[in-house]
């Protein structure tokens, strides 16, 4: 799936200080009935974001005007549960390009990387610092530097390195996906099958 090439992002961040944010919260199953990949951002965190009558819940961070930006910061074990890639699509479609947490569920992490959404793992202590900084000044920015694999709290200058598989980093920086790679491998796959 085509996505924007990723290099550096400097942006304020939206806090979601809950643990185990599961994919049923990110996008409830009843919104998975589309046969095309569009508009999922409208239903991102649907039941946390809206009352039953469709009015926004004032205390949910996405509805709070003081928070904005391309970076979503969640508690540990973000993206647990279902394999629905719609979760990554919804976060991306809403406008986020980075999700920061101290721990991600495996399938979500893979889905995010396949869709140009960068999962950044930081230590629990550093995550706490990010939450504190957002609370102190919601307009303050954070720098996500993919080439140097560095996440920086601009206001304090504190930074931390993050890990990413070199192959996936290359894909993200160049907007490539695995399918192109696999289709190129057809001959080798056929040889494997013949063995």
């Amino acid at each position: 799936m085509a996505y924007d090439k990723f290099s550096k992002i400097n942006s304020p961040a939206v806090p979601l200080p809950y643990e185990n944010v599961d994919t049923d919260q990110i996008i409830p199953a009843r919104f998975l009935k589309a046969v095309e990949r569009k508009g999922f951002g409208d239903n991102l965190f649907r039941d946390w974001r809206y009352e039953n009558d469709g009015s926004p819940k004032a205390d949910f961070p996405l509805n709070n005007d003081k928070y904005s930006g391309k970076i979503l910061v969640g508690g540990k074990n973000f993206g647990s549960g279902s394999s629905r890639e719609h979760a990554a699509w919804a976060i991306y479609d809403y406008g986020f390009r980075v999700v920061v947490s101290s721990f991600f569920a495996d399938i979500f992490k893979g889905n995010a990387l396949n869709n140009g959404l960068l999962p950044v793992v930081v230590s629990p202590e550093f995550l706490e610092k990010i939450f504190v900084q957002i609370e102190k000044d919601p307009e303050s920015t954070f720098e996500v530097d993919l080439p140097n694999q560095k996440f920086t709290i601009t206001a304090t200058g504190e930074s931390t390195d993050f890990e990413i598989n070199p192959y996936k980093k290359h894909c993200l920086q160049n907007g490539l996906d695995d399918i192109d790679y696999l289709v190129e491998m057809k001959e080798q796959i056929a040889e494997f099958e013949a063995k």
Binding site: S83, E85, N114, D178, I179, V183, K186, I189
Partner: peptide, 19 residues
Amino acid sequence: GIGTSEVEMVLASQCIMQP
């Protein structure tokens, strides 16, 4: 379990890329 991008990979090549 896999995501939809990976479903597409398997449909296209019967392979998937996994660490």
